[in-house]
Structures are given as structure tokens and as C-alpha cells.
Design a protein around this nucleic acid. Structure first.
Lengths: 113, 113
DNA sequence: TAATAATACCTAAGAGTTTGATGTATTGAA
DNA sequence: TTCAATACATCAAACTCTTAGGTATTATTA
């Protein structure tokens, strides 16, 4: 089962920030592959969604970049800035609380069974 | 703490379908208030987002409507169609699985009861 | 060796959704 | 009487994603 893009939308930034918090630096393609692998193909980030998001996070001062050449191929690494590190923690804990809230909402027993 | 609209976006339809699954019929304003109340103000659905969503679910054949008059005031009730009922279950279980996947990704220690 | 797949960056048009404001009208409370 | 709450809803602007495409290098396979 592949999760609907709707669900992924709300958490894309959280995923990216958390991966970077755990991995110091990663490049875009690597992020898509890592997420695919970690979630057994259930979350598939498309490049069309990922790259604009990375650029937006960079523009917000949460990410810094450095370019490396692997042979002749360009590779652009993204890392968390200090601001990005605190944002990553914030986002993860927000998600945790959100899940608890959602569970209480979704676990409600019908009034008339 | 009020949750970011980004998080809510991904689960708006799930919330609406689940509430209707538990309550037989509800009207739009009631949904916003119920969610606010059940989540202690942490999820606030805006009408600008809710009504188009209700209309979209209705157009998909997941909801049926009936109009009632409370005094002179119009009230439009939404209910799940049979198709909507199975969709509600589907959405809730998709969300549950999504949470499990996200938790492994975010390395959150599950606080599931 | 030639074609294909995978790696790696990215953009852009169109589609879809949300925000924030606004509109209408009734009812209840101060 | 006036303001807040109830209750429906829409709309333009802003925003985001999807889908498709572009460029180029390296690895694989037929």
C-alpha cells in the first residue's frame, strides 16, 4: 500500500528536516531513495515536490548547501542550519502531539453502536 | 498549541468522514465546533476549507445531504452514503498505518496505549 | 558496443487546495 | 439596541503538487 499524497503533503517538511537531523548532510535524490527504503516503498517522494521544498527550506534559512563533484556529476548536499535544527525538533514534536490528538479523535466510539 | 494547517490538510477528509461515521448526520458549523472541542482547540477547521471539502465529498458520492429548518434558519445535514461508510473505514486505517510508518521514520517512541 | 537504466540536478504548466476576507441572515445575550 | 454567535456559503489570491519534461553522467546489460 502506497500512502496517498494527501497524507504525505502535510509531513513532507517534517520528514526532510528529521532525516537531515539524523544524517548531517544528504542530497535530494538520496532523500527520495532513503525514504522509499525506510518506509518499504510506502512513501514515495516525487522530485517535483521535493526540490521546491528543499529550496523553500533553504530560503527560510533552515538549510545550507554545498556542492560536490562526484567525477563530473554534480551533487548538492543539504544540511541543517542551527535554526533548522531547532525547527526539526519542533516539527517532530508537533507531529507527535498531532498524532495523539488525531488518535483521540479517530478512536471515539460511536454513540449509537 | 494550534497545529499547523499543513498537518490538518492531509487529514481533513479523514476527520470529516470519521465524525460522520460516528454521528450519522452533522452540519458544517457543527463539525468545526465538534473538532475544536474534541481537540481542545488544537485543530481548528476553517469554513473556507471545510465547505469545499464537504462539497467535494458529496460530488464523489460519499455524502448525502438533507436540509432542515431550525426556525427560519437553514441547516444542511451531511450523512455518509454506503460508499462513504467504507471510505471512512479505509481512511482511518490508512491513517493508522501511515502513523506507524512515520513513527519508524521519525524514530518516535510510540506512546500508543 | 549500443542501448537502456540509474543517478542527479532541476523547472514549468496546469490542476488542485487553502487562506483570509467577505456576504447574507437569524437568534441569543448583555 | 447592539454585539456575539450561529449557519450557510463564495471568491480572489496565494500556495502547493502532479505530471511531464529537460540536461547530463555513469553503470549495466543485451
Amino acid at each position: 500500500m502506497i500512502f496517498s499524497s494527501e497524507l504525505i503533503k502535510g509531513t513532507l517538511k517534517t520528514i526532510v528536516l528529521k532525516l537531515l537531523a539524523d544524517n548531517k548532510k544528504m542530497y535530494g535524490y538520496e532523500i527520495t531513495q532513503r525514504v522509499k527504503e525506510l518506509t518499504k516503498d510506502r512513501i514515495q517522494l516525487t522530485e517535483g515536490a521535493l526540490y521546491p521544498t528543499l529550496h523553500a527550506l533553504e530560503a527560510d534559512g533552515l538549510l545550507t548547501t554545498e556542492t560536490e563533484y562526484i567525477g563530473k556529476r554534480v551533487r548538492k548536499y543539504y544540511s541543517l542550519s542551527p535554526k533548522g535544527k531547532s525547527k526539526a525538533k519542533e516539527r517532530v514534536s508537533e507531529f507527535t502531539e498531532f498524532v495523539e490528538t488525531m488518535q483521540s479523535l479517530l478512536d471515539i466510539k460511536p454513540r449509537l453502536a
